[in-house]
Amino acid sequence: MTVLPGFPQLRRFFGSFHRRDSVTIAVHAAPPPTIEAGKSIMNQLVNRRSLVASTAIAASGALVPFEAGANLLPHDEALVALAAQFEEHHTKYRVIHAQCERTHSEFEEKHGEPERHLPFKDHREYWTLRHVQCDPITKECEDAAIVLDEIGKRMRAIPAHSVAGIAAKATTLQFDTSLYPDQPEAPLNEWNWDVECLHLFIEEVRRLAAATA
């Protein structure tokens, strides 16, 4: 099994030791902001959330499956067909990912977190047991991610010629960015800001595509 996955979605399962969240790798790698910058960012966040709360935008926690109208151009027909494939596999991936997350969490609750068992050479028993118990579902999750990535690559190679085509391409954004809500059942304005922004953008593109179909 690879140690460094090609998918940021799986970084927790391959020993990067970051808990699953909706913060991008770039943010993790960036130096912490100064106190003044932090206050400014917080003020922007509060103001933005107040604005969102005061608007009449209705959005649910789960993305509505994308459906396009008739009379599509050939390029967009291909994108819409691929988007349907992507959504089907994405649903399966989310189930496998959740199972993978539970497997790792249960292992760490019982045997301890990986960062407490370094270097590897001094904790061979822990890592051998972790590989035995966690690697099968982790590999299954990685395989599911590869399927999604391959569909996404095909979609990115096809130019969109309409709003429907763009909406089809938007189907992959949540997976591509790994911006999933930690608590999907929570009210939208309690999600992390980046997750909320992406969700609202995808829903707006889909609304526009449906309106122009």
Rank of each mutant, 00 (worst) to 15 (best):
G15D: 03
G15N: 09
F17L: 12
H18K: 13
H18I: 10
H18L: 11
H18D: 10
R19C: 14
R19F: 14
R20D: 14
R20M: 15
D21P: 04
D21V: 03
D21G: 06
S22P: 05
V23I: 11
T24D: 13
T24P: 14
T24A: 12
I25W: 09
I25T: 12
I25R: 12
I25S: 05
A26G: 10
A26F: 06
A26L: 06
V27I: 10
V27K: 07
V27G: 02
H28M: 01
H28W: 11
A29D: 12
A30V: 02
A30I: 03
A30D: 01
P31H: 01
P32T: 03
P32D: 02
P32M: 02
P33W: 00
P33Y: 01
P33R: 00
P33V: 01
T34N: 02
T34E: 01
T34F: 00
I35A: 03
I35V: 13
I35N: 01
I35F: 02
I35Q: 03
A37V: 00
A37T: 06
A37L: 05
G38C: 01
G38S: 13
G38I: 04
K39T: 10
S40M: 13
S40N: 11
I41E: 08
N43I: 04
N43G: 07
Q44R: 10
Q44F: 12
Q44E: 10
Q44M: 14
L45N: 07
L45Y: 14
V46T: 12
V46H: 02
V46G: 00
N47W: 14
N47A: 11
N47Q: 09
N47T: 04
